Computed example of a mutant assay.
Amino acid sequence: MIKVVLLTGSHPRHFYVANQLIGLGCVVGHVVEQREAFMPQPPNGLEEQDRLNFMRHFADRDQAEHVFFAGNDMINQTVPTLKVSMQSLNGQQTMDWIQSLHADLLISYGVHKLSEHLLAAGPRDAWNIHGGLSPWYRGNTTLFWPFYMLKPNWAGMTIHQLTSKLDAGDIVHHSVPALEYGDGLHDVACKAVIQVAADLKKIVTTFELSEITYKKQKSAGKLYVSSDWQPQHLRVVYQLFNNDIVDHYLDGKLPKTEPSLINIFDKSFS
């Protein structure tokens, strides 16, 4: 089995993926970056409708993650663990520690950008789990934008090679969850995490690294930066649609365009 060193954030979704992989017995070390508070405060100066939408959005996210990732507020302590801050993530101690593990594969999820020096200190093969379908949704808040664009079936995850360019590495696999009536934005986001964890477990137990076929991202897509998202965007999800965009999609009330997904288990992609 492939020996993996994990680098993840500290939110429940990150720990869920980590614990799923650790349970396989393939993880030889886990670097945990302490991330920001999960429940942000609304910015000053918002109109009342936007303040309420902001509070609803992040309260719903917190509730959804506690439901879907119950029991994953802690990491499995059966593997060596190094806890770091954003400032020390790419530090010498982290590089030395990763190098000492002699892993076959580095997998990152929910950490800040990794330096080229750190990547050089780790195994030759390095993957990132991106919360969004690349290349169409790269960067930040990329599980939100498909809903804003009224394309909930474009909400998913991408496993790709780590490169110096954000979310631009060659793709290993796309993961998308099944949409069901009653799913809100955060339900789909959580189900996407569960799906990518299941797919990743299957990948590392099915393939040798030499068997992995990578696919280049054929278009630049869209790189969303933090400043692209504003609380006012929430009006579309919560006031115009009351968070029932999935129901509208399943009822055929929204266009059903499909992304061209890369599936490592589909032999036609070999």
Rank of each mutant, 00 (worst) to 15 (best):
W136E: 13
Q34D: 08
R138Q: 11
G139C: 08
Q230Y: 01
F38D: 11
C190Y: 03
D187H: 13
P255C: 09
T213R: 05
F69A: 06
L150C: 08
N76G: 09
E211K: 00
N72G: 10
W154M: 14
H186C: 07
V84P: 14
G184C: 04
Q195D: 08
S134I: 08
H11T: 10
D247C: 08
H14F: 05
H174I: 03
I262M: 09
L119R: 15
G29Y: 11
W229H: 11
D73C: 09
W229L: 12
S85E: 06
Y148D: 06
G182A: 07
W97N: 15
P80A: 07
N76M: 03
Q161W: 00
T213Q: 05
N263R: 04
N90H: 09
L101I: 02
M157G: 06
I22T: 04
V196P: 01
G91I: 01
F147K: 03
K222C: 13
Y238E: 07
A189E: 10
D228M: 05
F207D: 02
N140A: 14
H173G: 06
N128G: 12
E208Q: 12
V196Q: 04
T158N: 09
K151G: 01
Q161C: 04
M1K: 14
K253W: 03
Q161H: 02
V5L: 12
F147A: 11
I203M: 08
G156D: 09
V84M: 02
H130S: 08
M55T: 15
I129P: 13
G182P: 11
K222W: 14
S270N: 15
G71S: 06
L250M: 07
W127Y: 11
D104V: 05
W145F: 15
Y148W: 07
L89E: 07
D187R: 08
D251G: 13
V196I: 12
L162K: 09
W229R: 12
I212L: 14
K218Q: 15
S10M: 01
A120K: 10
A178H: 10
G221R: 00
K3Q: 13
K256S: 13
P80T: 04
G182R: 04
F144T: 14
Q87V: 07
P152W: 00
G23S: 00
K191Y: 01
P42A: 03
R124F: 15
L21C: 02
Y249G: 07
Q239F: 05
L118D: 12
P177Y: 02
M55P: 06
N128L: 09
P231V: 03
N242Y: 05
Q49K: 14
E65H: 10
E208I: 00
L24S: 07
K267H: 15
D73A: 11
G182Y: 04
Q20N: 03
V196A: 06
V196L: 04
N128F: 07
P12A: 03
K216C: 06
V27N: 12
I194G: 02
V67W: 11
F38S: 15
D183Y: 05
N44C: 13
P43S: 09
K113V: 14
Y109G: 09
T81N: 04
I22H: 03
L234F: 00
W97E: 15
P259L: 00
Q41D: 10
I245F: 10
R13L: 11
N153L: 03
E180S: 11
L234D: 02
Q92A: 15
D104K: 07
I159Q: 03
G29S: 15
